[in-house]
Nucleic acid binder design. Structure first.
Lengths: 186, 186
DNA sequence: ACCTGAACACCGTTCAAGT
DNA sequence: ACCTGAACACCGTTCAAGT
């Protein structure tokens, strides 16, 4: 049970988070933390107190995502579509979410296999969502033998990262089709 | 025809490059440029004169890679292996090369589709090497219809980027197998 | 033509002083 | 307990002075 925050602390915490969401949307997750503090109207020390690392700040913003990503996974399963369509839809939704802020995808790639990262837990939640989709299709015998959910997650996150990093805004669909063909039973 | 460099300029240029290779190998391509200048025994302005951006410096170091990557592609084709083995070997060699310095893979992902990047030309050379392997297999009817070499390049670079970014040193093999299965004719 | 190194701007991080 | 803002360290970039 975390004890409740003092009123002014809670106010600053929320203000920083709201500002970070705006700034990260505008200029990506590598924006100046100083600017976020300034625009939130707090001292740099206050931001640092609440979020000791940039990853901690990104992590706090990811809360919404993980919820939606989880919901998307279950929604995909519920459609009952054939494997190819289900996976393509799920992957595209997943990528849409984790590329909401520029630079986030590659941070997720890094955090995914790093238990020391503040973002690790949320990466696991998303990994479990993906695991449900993969398991569902695997149980239906629709996948190649030996497909590993964790590797699928890494691959799709990699695609997201490439699309996110790319200067041109390229279509992820063709890449996802290759991945899907590599997963579903031929 | 670029006019020859003055002797002292050439000496500094080479010294900076040699030092950068060492530092990038030790700490990756996001190391401090200041440190490179110091260890090379030149002023920061000298480094900046020869390499106006970090990408220009990485680009200069990539020369060796593109040569080897090109050679590897032709060597892979020459083996005459079946599609799966040939692609796996080629991809692994390619990844080994572009992850030689940490952070290089993601820079390559970014430069690949950005003609304004100093690294663009060398990315194209590597893309052409990959194109030769893909074309060779496609001509032999070993690939799925509609496989696009540029997308394969992006995917494999993405895998490299994920492996490079990852805190754990994970095996790229399982991911590459998925990609290969998505490319070769079922 | 090229090099040097001081100077500048920017940014993350710390911490003493204040409430 | 929390905030502020000055101070610090670090780094990329510029440029005047020198050869």
């Amino acid at each position: 049970m975390p004890r409740p925050m003092r009123a002014d602390a809670k106010r600053n915490y929320d203000k920083i988070l709201a500002t970070a969401r705006i700034v990260f949307t505008e200029r990506g997750t590598d924006s100046s933390l100083d600017e976020i503090a300034k625009r939130a109207g707090v001292g740099p020390g206050t931001l640092y107190r609440h979020f000791p690392t940039r990853e901690a700040l990104v992590d706090a913003l990811m809360q919404d995502w993980t919820d939606r990503v989880s919901a998307d996974a279950d929604a995909a399963i519920a459609t009952g579509q054939p494997a190819r369509e289900m996976l393509l839809g799920w992957f595209e939704h997943f990528i849409d979410h984790i590329t909401l802020h520029r630079g986030a995808a590659s941070k997720i790639c890094a955090a995914m296999d790093d238990p020391a990262s503040p973002m690790y837990r949320k990466c696991r939640v998303m990994g479990e969502a993906n695991g449900r989709v993969i398991d569902h299709l695997d149980a239906g015998g629709q996948l190649r033998p030996g497909v590993d959910a964790a590797n699928v997650m890494r691959l799709v996150s990699g695609v997201a990262s490439v699309a996110d990093t790319s200067h041109a805004d390229l279509d992820v669909r063709p890449m996802l089709e290759v991945v899907v063909d590599g997963i579903v039973r031929g």
